[in-house]
Design a protein around this nucleic acid. Structure first.
Lengths: 193, 193
DNA sequence: TGCATACTAACAAGCGTTAGTTAGTTGATT
DNA sequence: AATCAACTAACTAACGCTTGTTAGTATGCA
């Protein structure tokens, strides 16, 4: 791990606890055992750290939904695979995922706008999947707009409780969540995995 | 509405958009059409605003679950009534609820500890209800620890999408969410409201 | 008279960041 | 093997700005 990566990792770890504004460069420096000014040998600015976290993860979600839509054709399959991909991404770096969820509001104006746009797109893709499920007759006829936010919130809550050192693997978490969310969405009451 | 209430209301409204740290007393003052120093004629400190929001709402949730447990005896009823009460509280003041969800991390150390404890209690009460549902044979046998967080996250997402000027009344939102969550939890596949 | 509400001026602390410098290491050239 | 340039990673010192907040004062209404 390069020094730059070490700095970023520690920054994200601290940001998770203190929030973006609560993490000062002097605190970060102290935790790294160096002076605040030295941090700038490795990163361009405090904002840059947050931007990297947010857009790296956004990119992963973007690619995931693209792939799912490419490979699978019916809504139940799409949903199951997307839940799995989503949870895998979240669990791959829990600190980063937590910061992604909570701190994007503190992105600089321009980045924030583009971030919100990306999130809107992701939500739209999922909404389309749900609508497909309704059209295919598999899902209950619900309001897709609030369904997608409810669904995503349930998924994203993973970052609040998942313990990488616990017994569950990310894919097992995904299975349970798909079970939970699937039952909630499905019309077909014989639904079982 | 007293001047004090006006100040608090505007503060919460701005906090929702800018976050706790992003809301400066000078910005708040500007929005109120006064000088920053004048704010201190009405409130004690910036922290105090956040503390009031967080603990007022925490108290409401606390009382709601107490009442539900007093009045209803089986898990499905308890769950339905708690969902309704929870959503009502959220929708009663969306700005405050949003701040409550996102900004509690910025509470001063002592308050934050006691806030987390209160939240832990609330989660524990809901967990007990879910466990009751499992014991009664109505709910699927799931891990109650992650179920309660998943469930609460789905509920709390209301603050992200609910539009008070839209067609849905809070109780209608609660109905739909209970439907969604109920189906996810229930073993009984004939479940319908 | 007293209370509510506002003001100006200022303070101390903390913020992110820059400039300029100094060691230590690496890798190629002499 | 010795030399030199380039790079990495740290330092001290400081700048300019913003922060929450206080002190002291003025104005207008009950």
């Amino acid at each position: 791990m390069t020094r730059k990566e070490q700095v970023r990792k520690k920054a994200i770890e601290l940001m998770k606890f203190h929030g973006f504004s609560g993490l000062t460069m002097r605190l970060l420096a102290k935790e790294l055992g160096i002076e605040a000014a030295s941090i700038y040998n490795h990163i361009k600015s405090k904002d840059e750290i947050l931007e990297t976290v947010c857009f790296d993860l956004a990119k992963e979600f973007e690619l995931a939904v693209l792939e799912v839509n490419d490979i699978y054709f019916n809504a139940t399959e799409k949903l199951q695979m997307l839940v799995t991909a989503h949870v895998r991404i979240l669990c791959a770096d829990l600190d980063a995922s937590t910061v992604f969820m909570h701190e994007w509001r503190y992105l600089p104006e321009a980045s924030r706008v583009s971030f919100i746009e990306k999130r809107r797109n992701y939500e739209h893709e999922i909404r389309t999947i749900i609508q497909l499920g309704i059209d295919e007759g598999d899902f209950d006829e619900i309001d897709t707009k609030y369904a997608v936010i409810t669904l995503l919130s349930a998924l994203n809550a993973v970052v609040e409780w998942y313990n990488p050192h616990g017994p569950l693997q990310p894919d097992e978490v995904a299975d349970r969540l798909y079970n939970f969310i699937g039952k909630a969405l499905m019309k077909n009451l014989e639904f079982r995995v």
